[in-house]
């Protein structure tokens, strides 16, 4: 069987040799997983969320296992843009796979400053603008829950950079299509979804929430059906390409999201369970397409029937 088939995809000018990416916050800056495989095999790598200044993150506990999922309250622990450029960019820039920087701000101005700073990097493929982190005091999710503020953040970043912009949306909203359209009209070149679902857990012995911030973000296979539904909805509302994430653990999951309208997918929590998950998904997807004798483009959104054929 010819599994060297072409499954490359071009998303807003980001040329990827396959549609399998790794999701922000699950892959650090690429160092850890380099021990397990050649990470240049990935379609693209999305960095841990970056803020203007370093962030220490939230006090422990930060994770809690749930049925087929996990809650996290890491709180965007990261070295800040300056240290990122100094310590992480030198090794990231040597990779041949496209690197996408995930950025997060307390204010619209923060997003703009980070975008300008990162735009000076040669070879950075795109910015993923995180308007959906549930685990921080300011910014994050608040920007992604209101179409007007979502529009303002993306517009501000659009003015600050020529890099492709991916708006990362939160599932914690009533109308995902409204938010998606707002970011598209503000100049987003692609949309990624979903970030984690707000959840919580309670310690039944001491009668207190497990997490200091009470709520935390749910991820893993448990959220997949919700993510799939939202990708489906957004595909019907916008014409920019969609990058899907939310519980993708197997190539079958990836195929479902592509059929729902995703041009690419990102593996997140599954990295924690099976470090080689992205590689296995790439191989599985190639075989699937080969057996179906279809190319990737034909598959994207094809579960919608004739209702929405192009973007």
């Amino acid at each position: 069987m010819n599994i060297d088939m072409d499954i490359s995809v071009d998303i807003a000018g980001i040329v990827m040799k396959n549609p399998i990416m790794v999701a922000s916050g699950t892959f650090g800056f690429g160092r850890e997983y380099s021990d397990f495989y050649d990470i240049n095999k990935l379609g693209a790598l999305v960095t841990k969320g970056l803020t203007l200044l370093p962030k220490h993150g939230n006090p422990p506990p930060r994770t809690y296992e749930t049925p087929a999922g996990m809650l996290n309250s890491v709180g965007l622990e990261n070295p800040g843009v300056e240290k990122f450029i100094e310590k992480e960019w030198p090794h990231l820039s040597k990779l041949t796979t496209p690197i996408i920087a995930n950025i997060d701000g307390d204010t619209v101005e923060d997003y703009q400053k980070i975008a300008k700073w990162l735009s000076t990097l040669e070879n950075l493929a795109a910015l993923e603008v995180n308007i959906s982190c549930p685990n921080v005091e300011k910014g994050g999710l608040a920007f992604g829950q209101d179409p007007e503020s979502a529009f303002q953040v993306i517009k501000a970043v659009r003015e600050a950079t020529n890099l492709p912009i991916i708006a990362k949306l939160s599932p914690n909203v009533t109308h995902i299509q409204t938010i998606a359209k707002a970011t598209e009209s503000a100049g987003a070149d692609a949309i990624s979804l979903i970030n984690t679902l707000l959840g919580m857990a309670i310690d039944i012995h001491n009668h207190q929430p497990i997490f200091r911030r009470t709520f935390a973000g749910l991820s893993g296979p448990a959220v997949k059906p919700v993510a799939l539904r939202m990708v489906w909805e957004v595909y019907e509302a916008v014409s920019v390409p969609i990058i899907a994430m939310g519980g993708i653990t197997t190539w079958q999951d990836a195929a479902e999201f592509i059929l729902a309208g995703a041009s690419a997918v990102a593996v997140g929590t599954a990295n924690f369970i099976n470090p080689r998950a992205p590689i296995e998904i790439i191989e599985g997807l190639k075989t699937y397409l080969c057996l179906k004798e279809q190319n990737l483009q034909q598959l994207i959104g094809s579960a919608h029937g004739g209702r929405h054929l192009t973007y």
Binding site: T26, F27, E32, G57, P60, R62, T63, F272
Partner: peptide, 19 residues
Amino acid sequence: ACGIGACLGCSVKSTQEGY
């Protein structure tokens, strides 16, 4: 969660700064 340093889920407070 990951056990290899990627997810930042198993933190202990440092006596310096952060975790």
